[in-house]
Amino acid sequence: MNCNTAAFGDLLVTGVILGSVYALIALGYTMVYGVLKLINFAHDAIFMIGAAASFYLFGVWFDLNDPASGLGLVALLVLGLAFSGLASAGAAVALERLAYRPLRARGAARLSFLISAVGASFFITYLFQQNFLLGTSEHNFGGFMSRQPLVTVLGADLNGQRLLLFFGAIAMFIFLDRFVRTTRTGRSIRGVSEDLDAARMMGVNVDRVIMATFFIGGVFGGMAGFMYALVFEKVAWNLGFIPGLKAFTAAVLGGIGNIRGAALGGLLLGLIENLSTLCIGAEWKNPIAFSVLVLVLIFKPTGVLGEGLAK
């Protein structure tokens, strides 16, 4: 094996940055799995909607091309995060109401949920591929933020976009962890994920809790979509697919249904796939990430931190 150690620092940093994206998306999978025991296949489309929404906001309606700075930039970023988060959350809640709740009301088989989820994912994704939405081409994005590196860590240049993604993800995870552990809604979410029927008997409004879960997952997915688009400076109809699949891998790796597991799994997966390119060609990145999924499922299906939101 020829290992090229020169790029180590660079890959480590890239791994952490990408890992943060996976972690943020993985959260959507993990929370929905926690309460419904369902893989929300359409979550990759929810992520894409976040990126698309910010593209419409900044690229089409505001049409911003000049780098902003200072308070103006902060205002734009907050606006972008709020807009993309709410757009995705709205889509996620609508998805729950239209594609999942009717099935739940009927007590449909697991297979029906999965097929409905796959259908919804492809419906949303290919709807955005139509010319009246994003179309088939890639769009440039993020002209309003300077691309100059701000700091250098381990030999890797970090610009504002990457720093925003990393610290944003940390802040969001700390907030969510506190939210789920300390608030009333958070307690309901944990209760429902522990035992849905028992929670209902204890007076928890299960439908509302499920909606809240989709909302939170959507907000995180949407914000991740916005920051991902900022870092990679591109928005396209299919940008959710591969990160979605990897985020799911991350969720399983950390222990599906476990919020801290999603964060850990995301970082681990980002590091594994990027550091593997030290010794193996970069073209093997995706096969390696998905092989991790298969291996985890064989040897430790409950993931590193174990399953369950309540943990």
Binding site: P102, I115, S116, V118, G119, F123, Y126, Q129
Partner: peptide, 18 residues
């Protein structure tokens, strides 16, 4: 390309109204 969106929608509809 649009047929895929339509088929996706059909999957959801068929699961709901099955």
């Amino acid at each position: 390309t649009g047929r895929i969106a339509i088929f996706g929608l059909l999957l959801v509809i068929m699961m709901i109204f099955r």
